[in-house]
């Protein structure tokens, strides 16, 4: 079992795989609507000038989320 850590702690350009999404209600719904569900591969490709929000690259597109929203998502490192 690989280390599971919070998406907020992920470094730019690490290949990641989502392990859990614990957000509920509207936030949870929005996160899932955009395809952030367990098993999805993603990569932080950049941070805004003030380090929040971050840009997250999924297989087919890019989305943004705030650090406070990334706290609800845990990820593990994907081997290259």
């Amino acid at each position: 079992m690989k280390d599971v850590f919070c998406l907020r702690k992920a470094k730019v350009n690490q290949m990641l795989k989502i392990v859990t999404v614990s957000a509920e209600g509207e936030l949870g719904r929005r996160i899932r609507d955009l395809g952030l569900i367990p098993g999805t591969e993603c990569k932080v490709i950049g941070k805004a000038p003030l380090k929040d929000p971050v840009a997250l690259r999924l297989k087919d597109f890019t989305l943004t989320l705030r650090n406070s929203e990334a706290d609800h998502v845990t990820v593990s490192l994907l081997e290259d």
């Binding site: 509207e26 996160i31 840009a55 597109f61 989305l63 943004t64 989320l65």
Partner: peptide, 9 residues
């Protein structure tokens, strides 16, 4: 409101 949104190409 959550900021989760698409950054379209």
């Amino acid at each position: 409101t959550p900021f989760v949104m698409e950054l379209p190409p």
